[in-house]
Amino acid sequence: MITWTTNSVHNIRPDEFYNLISRNAEHIEKTFPVTLSGCLTLEKTIDFIALAIASQLRKDTFYYYLRDNETHTLIGYLCIKNINRSLGKCELAYFVDKDFEGRGIITRAVANALSVCFNRLGMNKVYICTSPENSASQRIALKHGFIQEGILRSEFKNGQGGLEDIFYFGLLKSDYTKK
């Protein structure tokens, strides 16, 4: 079993994130096009991380990086984004290194993030948007009690520039606290 820790954006180096993105470019090209395009070079990654730090300082977005305790390399990424404080809702987006899929890492990371969303940020709803083909992410959502609330048609521009439908999963705080 792999052990890992969560680091904030303040505790990672741009070269580490660049390496994670580079290793997983094909794996995430459809689902993380903004991150991928923002990290095509180390120089762009430095700017990407600087923007992430500024966004986190404004409390607009929260970034978490998953680090393998044995190798000390980054193996995943999770962010709490699209925070709407007036509606009390936010979105989770995440991925794990292709070589670490299926080990429960994202399941545990999402559980930790949900606690932050509901208990620290005071959100009433957390949502996850997935590609219709991303059954692994859909399973993560369902495992945590999210309900598929609908399909948003032509809602997401993928890495190739095409518009795709997304599956929208929501979890209310009242359902979260029942678990």
Rank of each mutant, 00 (worst) to 15 (best):
S154V: 07
I147P: 06
R108M: 11
I2R: 13
I151A: 06
D175G: 06
L121V: 09
N119S: 10
I147D: 08
F167K: 13
N158S: 09
K179D: 10
K178N: 11
E43G: 12
I128A: 02
K178A: 14
N158K: 02
P14Y: 03
K179Y: 12
T35Q: 01
N84C: 07
S22G: 07
I80E: 00
G159N: 02
A141R: 09
H27V: 03
I53H: 03
G162P: 05
L78F: 00
L163F: 15
K143T: 11
F169S: 14
T31I: 14
P33F: 02
A111L: 02
E155I: 05
S137N: 11
G102V: 07
C90E: 08
S86H: 09
R139L: 09
K98S: 13
S8H: 06
S8I: 09
L74G: 00
I2F: 14
N11V: 08
K89Q: 10
I80C: 06
D165S: 11
K81E: 14
D47M: 10
G38M: 00
I49R: 01
K44I: 00
R153H: 10
T35I: 11
R103W: 10
A54S: 15
A50M: 04
I21P: 01
R139P: 01
V116I: 15
T107P: 03
L78I: 13
C79R: 14
G162C: 09
T31N: 10
E29S: 13
L163W: 12
L121C: 11
L40N: 11
R139T: 08
A50W: 00
L51W: 10
C129M: 15
